[in-house]
Lab assay of single mutants.
Amino acid sequence: EEEEKKKEEIARLLGVSKEDVERILKKNNLDIEQLLRRVQREN
């Protein structure tokens, strides 16, 4: 699934687990696209 791939990509870029990414998304109330763009910009 596309969303899972995005979570895995974010996890890889941040050096965290996919579960961490899911927690970040919930905690910050971000959607996956916003987080992915933010992470890609910083790297």
Rank of each mutant, 00 (worst) to 15 (best):
E1P: 12
E1K: 12
E1H: 12
E2F: 08
E3S: 11
E3T: 12
E3A: 13
E3K: 11
E4V: 07
E4L: 08
E4D: 13
E4Q: 08
E4N: 10
K5D: 09
K6I: 14
K6P: 02
K7F: 08
E8H: 11
E8M: 13
E9C: 09
I10A: 10
I10G: 02
I10V: 14
I10C: 13
A11M: 08
A11G: 06
A11K: 02
A11P: 00
R12C: 10
R12F: 09
R12A: 09
L13Q: 05
L13G: 02
L13W: 05
L14F: 02
L14A: 02
G15V: 01
G15H: 06
G15N: 07
V16Q: 03
V16S: 04
S17C: 05
S17L: 06
S17A: 07
K18A: 07
K18F: 09
K18Q: 07
E19I: 10
E19L: 10
E19S: 12
D20H: 11
D20G: 05
D20W: 13
D20A: 13
V21S: 00
V21G: 00
V21C: 02
V21H: 00
V21A: 01
E22Y: 01
E22D: 13
R23T: 11
R23S: 11
R23E: 13
R23V: 12
I24N: 01
L25N: 00
L25Y: 01
L25W: 01
L25H: 00
L25F: 01
L25K: 01
K26D: 09
K26E: 14
K26H: 10
K26F: 05
K26V: 13
K27C: 10
K27I: 14
K27H: 12
N28L: 15
N28G: 11
N28P: 03
N28E: 15
N29P: 04
N29I: 05
N29W: 05
L30N: 05
L30C: 05
D31Q: 07
D31Y: 04
D31E: 07
D31G: 10
I32N: 01
I32E: 03
I32D: 01
I32C: 06
I32V: 14
E33N: 13
E33G: 03
E33D: 15
E33F: 03
E33R: 02
E33T: 05
Q34A: 11
Q34I: 07
Q34N: 09
Q34H: 09
Q34G: 13
L35W: 03
L35H: 02
L36N: 03
L36W: 06
L36E: 05
L36K: 03
L36V: 04
L36I: 07
R37A: 15
R37T: 11
V39M: 08
V39H: 04
V39G: 02
Q40G: 07
Q40M: 10
Q40W: 02
R41Q: 15
R41S: 15
R41N: 14
E42C: 10
E42R: 06
N43P: 09
N43L: 15
N43R: 14
N43V: 15
N43K: 14
